[in-house]
Structure formats: C-alpha cells, structure tokens
Design a protein around this nucleic acid. Structure first.
Lengths: 333, 333
DNA sequence: TTGTACGCGTTATCAA
DNA sequence: TTGATAACGCGTACAA
C-alpha cells in the first residue's frame, strides 16, 4: 500500500485502476483515520482548483443577492466552490480583490454589478485582470459592458426603450427620470435609451426632469426629494432600478404624493421582493437566474477574450403603479 | 537573490528582515514578471489559510443575505476571504459541504440558519464537524442552538414572549399562529414561547389556531390559505418570520381580508425589505449585522468547544399592522 | 495492477 | 542580513 495507490483509490486516476480489495482497504482506513484530502495540495499538484471567484457589490441589494444565489446554485451542480467578495463602497479595492483571487488560483472570476466610468479605477482593474488572464484565468462580467472580457449583458437599452413605448401607450407624457449617477454605465444606458425613445415619440424629457442621484434605495429617496423641492411637473416617475423606485415611493408617500393617483412609478429589474410592495410596481424584468447560469457557463468555457459576450433579453412588466391614463385628464403635478 | 530572500521581501517574516536595496529589487522584479504569490502553496507551507467557510441556506431570503453580507464585510476588514456555500433544499448535503470546506482547510466554518431536528442529518453533520474540529478547525453556528459548537444565538424565546405581551397590551386576544415546521428549531422556539406566554396571560391559543407550514414566504401563503379555508377565528396573525408574514399578507389581501382592519399581523426578524411594505409590519428585530460580526469573532477566537456561546437580544418593533384595538370591539373574523 | 520518485510554490530552519 | 535546503500533501510519469 503505497501513497500513490492510496491517491488513486481515493481520487481516481485517468489512466490507472485499483484492485477491489485494496480499494476497500484504503477507503476503510481513510474513514478510520478521518482523512480528508488537502485541497491546497491537490491544487498545487494538479495546477488547478475547483473554485471560482465571485465579486459583487452588495448582498443587501436583492438584485445582487439573487444573482449570487443563482451562481452558487449553478456552481454546486457542477461541483465547484465559490469564493465570494463584496466590494461595498470601496470600489477602489476591486483591483486588489481580483489580485487576491488570482493568488488563490481560482478557475474563473465573475464580476457582477456595475461598471463605473472612472479611468483610474478602470486602469488598475484592467492591470489586475490582465495578469490573471495571462496566467490562464478566465474573467466574465455580468450585467455590464467590459471591453476585453466576455460579458453577459442585460439588454438595458432595449428594455428602457420598450418601457418608454409602454408608458406612452398608457398615456404618460411627462416623465420624471431618476437617472442614477452619470458615470454609472448601467444607469446611463437605461436613462439615455429611455429619454431618447421618449423624444422620438414626441415627448422629450426636459433636463430639469432628469435627476442625478445614487443607484441605491437612498438615491431614489434623495432624487424624489429633489424633485419635490424643485416643484417639478411629471406624470410618471421612472427610476433606473427597483430599489431606487422603492426609495422614491417611500419618499413620495411621506410627502403626500400618492402613487399611482398623483403619478405613475416604474423601476427596473423585477427583484423578487417586489411581490410584497403596494402598489404593484411596473418594472422591466431582468432574468437574474439565467444571467447567473450563463455567466458561469461562459466563465467555464467561453473564449475568454471578450468575443463570447451575449445579451439576455428583458421584458417590461406592467403593474398597478402605472395604470392607463384617461385621455381626458392625465394626472399631473 | 535566493528564493528565501524573495519570499521574505514579498510576504515578510516574523524573525528576519531584508535589506532595503534587495527589497526594492525584488519588488521591482515581481511587478515586472507579474508575480502573484500562490495562495495554495502558501497554505501548504504555512499550514493555514486565510479563508473562512460560510454555509447559508438561501441567499434569496433577505435575512440570510443580510447576515452573509455582514460576514463578508467583517471578513474583508480582517483581510480574510470567504468561501460560500448554499445548501438550498438539499439539507442532506450539509455534511458533505462541511467536509469540502474541511478539505480546503478553511480557518473556520460559520453555519448560518436553521437547525432541523433530524437525527440522521444531525449525525452525519456532526461526524463531519468532528473530523474538521479534530484537525484544528473551528465551527460556529449562527442563529441556532447546536450542542458542542460555539453559537451566536438569537433570543427567540425572549422575543416571542415580549411580542405576546405587546400584543395583549394592544388588545389582541386570539392569535392565529403560523408556527412553521415542527422540527425547525428556530420556528419551534418562537412558537412555543409565544403560545406559552399567551396562555400565562390568560389567552391560550387553541390548537386549531396553530398552523404548521414551511418557514418560507410560500409557507406563509399556504398557512394563511389553510386558516381561511378552515374558517378560523382570530384577531392577529403571528408568523414565525418576516417572509412568512409577507406571504400571509399577500394571501390575506387576495382573499379580501384587510390588514390590519380585519386582523393584525406580525413577523420576526425585521428584514430590511420591510421598509417598503404596506402596512408597516410589526416584527421582532434581530440585529443581523451584529450577529454576523460576533459570529466571525467567535469563529476566529472563541473556545471552539461550545462553551463560548452568546445570545443577542431582540426587540419587538410595533408598526401599523398591529394598531391598538378599541376595548369595545376587537376586530375578528 | 502496484510501487518509486520527482515536482508543484512557498515558508521555516539552519548555517553562513 | 543572506543563502541553501528540507519540509508541506498530493498527482503522475516511469519503472517494476
């Protein structure tokens, strides 16, 4: 009973096989001794791990949580493990996080969330990514465009465009757009496509009705407050994601503005927690589970050079927060 | 420039120091070559990793997501990494998950969520845990009692008791208790303490008014439906967690039962997504961030033998879903 | 089918 | 302060 035989008996081998009796004896001894193979040693000997790295901004946001859960589930099915890192506010650390995952020799890295149009951060991050990729690592970005890496994109423009069309069809004419931060690429894509389509449809959104704030629930609250203080006129509030919409809803209600009686409201994402919100929130559904699954697949077997990017479609979901307006008297404020 | 010197220059050493000039040369070369230390090799040489394993049931549940996020944040502060596993429905796999984390030689394992009173599962899990602990690993359980391992407990009994007192003080007399599964220890603790206190206060909860269903949103929906079909009488619905309460709220509303006009409603946990629910849900606040932080601390430096267990307190939070009842006419159905 | 011996990348021990 | 070398635990080519 040599070490090699034991190794083969426990973890198998491509080319060799082990006698039945020995196999049994080894298994027995292993159980008896409480033996658990050292994954680190295996990683070194094999030159590869079964771990993939996942970087999300914030698990507190149901959208990210849903994606992380989807990746975790898909990973388990494939007998892979997950190393998860949250960046939180500290976006500057993203490059370092990638480097750490690189050190761990994770099979692949999945970056999920938003890309900021910040040249400095971008450069630092790209440097880390290049190192990792140069060593044979694979990187995938979920829900953001990222030149040079395979992406699973969300059809933000198409979704925002479709949403504009639906709203106009319902009779809305003068949206208040909570655009999110200007340098937040996801927010910007949605906002630009939306306002663009509104203009095409004959209802351009005045600059005053485009309010910049964070891409968070707090951002929605702040944006709404600014709108109220500015005395703006609008018949529907269009937030760039669901949590912003929820923040806006809360602030509006506190200020005596009734949704949808005084104004409609829409979000983006269709996070699962929306089912318990009143009124039912009109939004654009992003299939987060599919996003996660495709992302993992791409991470495992995509080209890895950015040419494997795909886009998942999204669909407007109309609910009570945007009832059809009567031709005679569109609500306004 | 030997390997040893390079190692010392890059990752430091307890006992040695490196000359300034050499240190600079090494750093320069490392950067030039795109060198990233191999964490697996380090783990082997040092005999320890900087990774901790976290096992949660389901990231889709805001309660677990909040805890996971808290652990991730605290871990980042301590320069630790997280390997995260979700068990999902497959509770039987828990032992295997622990064994896998054992293989990875994670510093500690944090088990978060619910313990099931299933002797078979329990035995399998304990076997895995014992192996891991025998090798020097540390295990901590969050939000559940787990004999033999350090726990960060939630004061479920105290919270449920306090809730009962508050409800009675508000004028509620006849609760409908959505108990959750009988073998779910958290649910059982809360339900037992609640009914016990109600009885003490002179308002015993009839068996018919105690409904068993899953500890999930769907469970809340099902439980509520059963109550409606059973034609039960109650003045407040008491769910064993927030997502159950939300499921019940939804089902009640669909069935024409108005909360709180027709009946009060309470949850447990005070998950963050409650802020956007109408009516404001009365609940018992569980400090998930604190739970996470204490859990990590305990995992890193607790005794590791179950004697380090601590309990975090909880507080009833009264909101619109349980208005004070008029003495004259308690709502009922 | 089984055993031997080397290499994976790093740290720690010991000697210089 | 630096260098040489033996571990760490495993997989695998090679020999038996």
């Amino acid at each position: 009973m040599s070490l090699a035989t034991a190794s083969r008996a426990i973890n198998g081998s491509e080319t060799r096989t082990v006698g039945e009796d020995l196999r049994r004896r080894v298994a027995e001894s292993a159980r008896l001794l409480g033996y658990a193979p050292n994954a680190n040693a295996q990683a070194m000997a094999r030159g590869a791990t079964r771990t993939i790295g996942v970087v999300v901004h914030d698990l507190t946001d149901p959208y990210f949580a849903a994606i992380a859960d989807g990746i975790a589930t898909a990973a388990t099915e494939r007998k892979l493990f997950l190393t998860l890192a949250t960046t939180g506010n500290n976006l500057a650390a993203l490059g370092d996080v990638v480097t750490s995952l690189d050190s761990m020799r994770v099979r692949a890295i999945i970056l999920v969330g938003a890309r900021w149009k910040d040249p400095d951060l971008q450069d630092a991050l790209m440097a880390s990514i290049d190192q990792y990729v140069g060593r044979g690592g694979r990187v995938v970005a979920l829900g953001m465009d990222f030149p040079g890496v395979d992406c699973v994109q969300v059809a933000n423009e198409a979704g925002a465009t479709a949403l504009a069309e639906e709203l106009v069809a319902l009779g809305y004419r003068r949206p208040l757009v909570l655009t999110g931060p200007e340098r937040h690429s996801t927010a910007a894509s949605r906002a630009t496509a939306f306002t663009h389509r509104m203009k095409q449809l004959g209802h351009p959104v005045p600059d005053a009705n485009q309010i910049t704030s964070d891409f968070t629930r707090a951002g929605g609250t702040v944006g709404m407050r600014l709108a109220i203080e500015g005395g703006l006129t609008y018949d529907v509030i269009v937030a760039m994601n669901d949590v912003m919409a929820l923040g806006a809803l809360n602030e509006a209600t506190r200020s005596g503005i009734s949704i949808p009686a005084d104004a409609g409201l829409t979000g983006f994402g269709d996070i699962s927690t929306l089912v318990d919100v009143t009124p039912g929130l009109t939004t654009v559904r992003v299939p987060s589970g599919q996003l996660a699954r495709l992302g993992l697949d791409l991470a495992l077997s995509g080209p890895g050079d950015g040419t494997g990017s795909i886009t998942v479609g999204v669909t407007p979901v109309l609910r009570d927060s945007t009832p059809a307006l009567r031709d005679s008297a569109p609500a306004s404020r």
